[in-house]
Simulated assay, not measured.
Amino acid sequence: MEQLIEFHDDDEAQVVLGIQDCNLRRIREGFDVEAHARGRSLQISGDSAQVNFAVSAVESLVAAHRSEGELNLDEILDGALMSADSVEEEHRPAPKPSKGPIARSPGQQLYLDAMSRSPIVGVLGPAGTGKTYLAVHRGVEYLKQGLVRKMVLCRPAVEAGEKLGFLPGDFQKKVNPYLRPLYDALGELLDYDQIRRYSDREIIEVVPLAYMRGRTLNEAFIILDEAQNTTPAQMKMFLTRMGQESRIVVTADPTQVDLPRGGPSGVHHARRILGNIEGFEWLELDRSDIQRNSLVTKIVRAYESHEGSQKKKPTQPPRGQTR
């Protein structure tokens, strides 16, 4: 199918298509159509349903421009893209079957309740307690319900034994392994095409923590994963990115700190100085909340027992010295 749209003048074409054709690119990628602008004309071709969605979006942008009001064209285009997704989802095959209740332990239910109640939530717990999965699940819910406009997931790029410089590829390829667990969590809730579309439109971003500096995120659901590997300065930088109508979830496993020995963890520092701020809620999960393979619970228990016994052992003075 092919449709031709004629703009009133060059100014209208430039405003609707965006600076350096930024809106035109979003229309191509978001609706998966061919779109070519020539002077005051815009030609759109492709699947008939997608072309109709794209034409409707362009017409909404034109109407907003002609109204001469204070309408935000970015928000109008966002809404058109989200509406098209909603219609498509109604005709897609049934989503992945649920693996059971979202909360599978009392601690996990407290975590979900906290995310509904408080703008900022910090959760600490061992591996397998659902810290990241439940945060991503709640973020996707907020996104689909229109409670936020975007979702941002980030992690500190801290090595656990290997150095970034020794990994192959450019910087993006080097940091991708650190972000892989966040994509895995998204993959449990959205299909590949959805993740790709949301990523192309920057509705969902998965980025290293360093990329957050200097940003203000309004109407966003923001998740900081592996926060035990942040420094106090990084944690302060992250928390102050929060804009209007945004929500933040900070997840951390205090037993898996990969910072240089002796370096203070930003999550412990934040909990100490921000513990009494209204709207910032902290909670802890424990091994009773682990929902991975049952062996994970046994592994965590064994490590906790070993570390506890090591702490109880008296330290021996260096040879030649006395206490």
Rank of each mutant, 00 (worst) to 15 (best):
I120M: 09
D193R: 14
A210M: 09
E159N: 11
A157I: 09
L189P: 12
N218Q: 08
M115K: 09
Q145A: 15
N218I: 01
T240W: 04
A135D: 01
V250S: 01
V121D: 08
E202I: 04
Y178F: 15
R155V: 00
Q244P: 10
L134N: 09
T132R: 01
A160L: 06
Y211A: 13
R180V: 00
I223M: 14
A114C: 04
M242F: 03
K150N: 13
M237E: 12
F166L: 12
R197I: 01
Y192A: 15
R138C: 14
L179H: 10
K163C: 07
L124T: 13
M235Y: 02
M235Q: 03
Q194A: 15
G146R: 00
P177L: 02
D253M: 03
I195Q: 06
I120G: 01
M151H: 02
L147H: 14
R213V: 13
Q234H: 09
G139K: 00
T240D: 07
R196Q: 14
V207F: 14
R201I: 03
A127S: 03
E219V: 07
K236H: 11
A185S: 10
Y178V: 10
Q172H: 14
I204A: 06
A135Y: 02
S118Q: 08
I248K: 04
G169Q: 08
G161K: 01
K144L: 06
A160S: 13
L182M: 07
L239G: 11
K174F: 07
M237D: 09
S246N: 05
S118T: 08
K173P: 11
R196G: 06
C154K: 08
K131E: 09
Y183K: 02
V152E: 00
Q244N: 14
K163L: 14
E226D: 07
I195C: 09
R117W: 06
I204M: 10
R149V: 03
G122T: 04
I223Q: 14
S199N: 03
I248F: 09
R180K: 06
G161D: 00
F221K: 00
D225M: 04
L147D: 13
A252Y: 01
A114S: 05
F166W: 10
